[in-house]
Design a binder for these strands. Structure first.
Lengths: 137, 137
DNA sequence: GTTTATGCAAATTCTTTGCAATACT
DNA sequence: AGTATTGCAAAGAATTTGCATAAAC
């Protein structure tokens, strides 16, 4: 598992306290999705909300993070294993737990492709599974 | 294809102009998702925004509509074929076209279930495919 | 010393809530 | 008539933009 500072250097991004903090949070959380609000709370007001939003955007543009589809219209971001190395994939399987409300990126599972009706052309796919996770049994 | 007024009677909902209009729009649009903003524009200010929101909520509670997952955090609602009769299903395959921005409910396709890691329990699933649709070839 | 990121203020969009007036059956 | 729905005003959450200051390289 890479450290935040190293990832920033790799991606040619300036090493700022906010970026190190945000990226560190994602690394610590593993494959769990984190919302901007959570980051704001975790940082205890150390960084401006706007700065966190901009940091998230920077990371998305750099393919470090991707947006996580939530059924309840709540936006989260996640660092996926696949995104860390070079074969960045846009085929994500996300699991949303209705009990603890965490959304995780199930990297182990690959999306089974379906046959689309004539004329449809797939670019990417997101599979969201809603249910209960191991911790909430 | 049922008419709006009949569906309302079936579901024991009062027949009001806003409900008839909104439901009519969904029937006309077929399996395409519609956002609250679109409904507001289409009605040309005839109904209050709040009323449209409440109407959408009423229809969701009555299993007439379901929320459509959009990758770009845009909320749409759709009337699915499966939802019209009694075997209301929550396993939806949605297709979002990056060109015309429409989201449609692909009723013909059923979700292929995946094997979840130990401890995970599925309640429902949403599959969103992003790409180009037949009209935007 | 340049370039880029940050913080603050403020604006926008989406959505919800309370309450009195109105429409539905 | 009695109950449910509507419209208005207003509040709340999430997100974005502009600009001057500050920090990174």
């Amino acid at each position: 598992m890479k450290k935040a500072a190293d990832i920033l250097i790799d991606k040619d991004l300036r090493k700022t306290p906010c970026r190190v903090f945000v990226l560190g949070e994602f690394i610590r959380k593993g494959n769990k999705g984190i919302s901007e609000t959570e980051l704001e709370n975790r940082s205890k007001g150390k960084f401006d909300r706007v700065t966190i939003y901009r940091t998230l955007k920077t990371f998305m543009d750099a393919d470090i993070l991707h947006k996580v589809i939530d059924d309840d219209n709540l936006v989260k971001y996640a660092l996926c294993k696949e995104c860390e190395d070079d074969h960045h994939s846009h085929e994500h399987v996300h699991f949303k737990c209705t009990s603890c409300n965490t959304t995780s990126c199930l990297d182990e599972i690959s999306i089974v492709s379906v046959d689309l009706p004539k004329g449809y052309k797939k670019i990417e796919a997101n599979y969201l599974i809603i249910g209960t996770c191991p911790e909430c049994k």
